[in-house]
């Protein structure tokens, strides 16, 4: 949520105040593509991990552990998509606040789940 993020050196070209030569622009393009591919690979790996978690932690013996791990993985994956594919890392805080609005529904769901666990 820090506005200063938008002022970092890698983002300064956004405002057009820093001149970028062809080599630098080409290098930035490659970096951007590499970042996208890295996020893609991480998402694929985490999906694979999600599929194997239920078989490791069966519902009868460690339902809570399974649920916490799966929720953590899902939120991590969703955050990666929002930050890097939807470019929230480049947005100012008001856009981020708009994006964060549905989170309170998630909090409500978590409360319901916790209630069902500890009832």
């Amino acid at each position: 949520m820090d506005d200063s993020m938008t002022q970092s050196p890698t983002k300064s070209a956004h405002g057009g105040h820093v001149s970028t030569g062809p080599d630098q622009a080409s290098g930035e393009k490659q970096t951007q593509k590499a970042l996208y591919i890295t996020i893609f690979l991480v998402l694929g790996f985490l999906t694979l991990l999600e599929v194997f978690v239920p078989s490791v932690y069966s519902a009868e013996y460690s339902g809570n552990t399974k649920m916490l791990i799966l929720c953590f993985l899902a939120i991590l994956k969703a955050s990666l998509v929002a930050m890097f594919f939807m470019h929230l890392d480049h947005e100012k805080k008001w856009v981020r606040w708009i994006a964060c609005m549905p989170i309170y529904m998630g909090v409500a769901v978590i409360l319901i789940m916790l209630e069902s666990i500890y009832r």
Binding site: T10, G16, T20, G21, Q24, E28, K29, Q32, E91
Partner: peptide
């Protein structure tokens, strides 16, 4: 908005 390809965008 990604800005890493800013060199190709007309900032005006």
């Amino acid at each position: 908005m990604s800005d890493t390809n800013a060199a190709t965008i007309d900032h005006a």
